[in-house]
Simulated assay, not measured.
Amino acid sequence: MAETDKFAVQPHADATSQQQAHSLEHWRSHTGRNDIITGLRAMHVWLALGWHDIRQRYRRSVLGPFWFTLTTLVMVGVLGFMYSELLGQEISDYLPYLGIGMVVWQFISTAANEGCNAMIGAGSTIKQIRMPLTTHVCRMVWRNLVILLHSLPVVVLLMVFFGHSLTLEFLLLVPGLLILMLNAVWSGIVFGILCARYRDVMPIIGNLFQVGFFLTPVMWRASDLKERAWIADINPFNHLIEIIRAPILGTPIMLEPWLWSLALIFLGFAAAHYLMVRFRERVAYWL
Rank of each mutant, 00 (worst) to 15 (best):
M1S: 11
D5Q: 01
D5T: 00
A15F: 00
A15V: 00
S23H: 06
G32Q: 09
D35M: 01
G39R: 09
G39Q: 12
L47M: 04
I54G: 06
Q56N: 07
Y58F: 15
Y58S: 06
R60E: 12
S61C: 08
G64S: 15
W67S: 09
L70K: 05
V74N: 07
L79A: 11
Y83D: 06
Q89R: 14
Q89V: 07
I91P: 02
I91M: 03
D93K: 08
D93S: 08
D93T: 11
Y94C: 13
W105K: 13
S109E: 05
A112T: 05
N113Y: 04
M119I: 14
G123R: 08
L133Y: 11
V146A: 09
L148H: 03
L152Y: 09
M181I: 09
S187Y: 04
D200R: 01
M202L: 10
L208E: 03
F209R: 03
Q210T: 02
G212H: 11
P217A: 06
W220A: 05
W220L: 03
K226H: 10
P236Q: 07
P236G: 07
N238L: 04
N238K: 11
N238P: 00
L249S: 01
M276N: 14
R280A: 09
R282S: 10
W286D: 12
L287K: 05
